[in-house]
Simulated scan of single mutants.
Amino acid sequence: MAEQLKLGFVPLLDCAPLVVAREQGLFREQGLNVVLSREASWSSIRDKLNYGLLDGAQMLAPMPLAATLGLGSPALPSCSLMSLSRNGNAITCSVPFYQRLYEQADGETSPTALGSALRQQLSQLGRKPVFATVYPYSNHHYLLRDWLSRSGINPDTEIDWRAIPPAQMITALAQRRIDGYCVGEPWNSLAVLQGHGLIVAPGQQLCPEVPEKVFAVTQAWAEQHPESCAALIRALYQACHWISQCRDKQALLELLALPPYLDHSLLPLLETGYQHHWGSAPLHQQFFDPQMNAPSPLQGQWLVRQMLAAGQLSAADAELANRRLLPQVFRIDLFEQATRAMMPQA
Rank of each mutant, 00 (worst) to 15 (best):
R234V: 15
I233L: 05
P226V: 04
P259D: 04
S265G: 00
I243H: 03
T272R: 13
S244P: 09
E227D: 15
P226W: 04
P268C: 03
P260C: 10
Q245A: 07
Q245P: 04
P226R: 05
E271I: 03
L269K: 07
K249A: 10
I243S: 08
G273S: 06
K249R: 15
H241C: 12
P268I: 08
E254A: 12
L266M: 08
L269A: 08
E227R: 15
P260I: 11
C246A: 15
L255Q: 08
A231N: 12
S228T: 15
I243A: 05
A222R: 14
W221L: 06
T272M: 04
C229G: 03
Q245W: 00
Y261F: 15
L252F: 00
P259S: 08
A230T: 06
Q224C: 11
R247A: 13
L232T: 04
Q250G: 13
H264C: 02
C240I: 02
P268D: 06
T272F: 00
Q275T: 12
A235T: 04
I243P: 10
L256Y: 02
L270N: 05
W242F: 14
C240M: 10
Q224P: 12
T272A: 12
A230K: 10
H241G: 04
L255A: 00
W242H: 14
L266A: 08
K249G: 03
A230V: 01
A230D: 14
I233N: 03
L252S: 01
A251T: 01
T272I: 03
A257L: 07
P259N: 10
Q275W: 00
Q238R: 15
A230I: 08
Y274P: 03
C246Q: 15
G273L: 04
A231S: 14
A257G: 04
C240E: 12
S265P: 00
H241R: 15
W242T: 14
E223V: 10
A235E: 01
P226K: 10
A251E: 04
Q238W: 11
H241P: 09
W242Q: 13
P260N: 09
A235Q: 03
Y274M: 06
L258D: 08
L269C: 10
H264N: 01
P259M: 08
L236N: 00
Q250K: 13
E227I: 11
C240Y: 01
G273I: 09
D263E: 10
H241Q: 13
L236E: 00
P260W: 03
K249F: 12
Y237A: 01
Q238S: 13
L252E: 05
A222C: 11
E223Y: 02
E271L: 14
L232S: 06
P259I: 10
L236T: 01
S265K: 11
L266I: 11
I233W: 02
L267C: 06
I233F: 05
W221A: 12
Q238E: 13
Y237H: 13
Q275R: 14
C246L: 11
A257Y: 02
Q250A: 12
E223C: 02
G273F: 05
Q238F: 09
A235G: 05
Q245L: 14
Q238V: 00
I233M: 07
L256G: 02
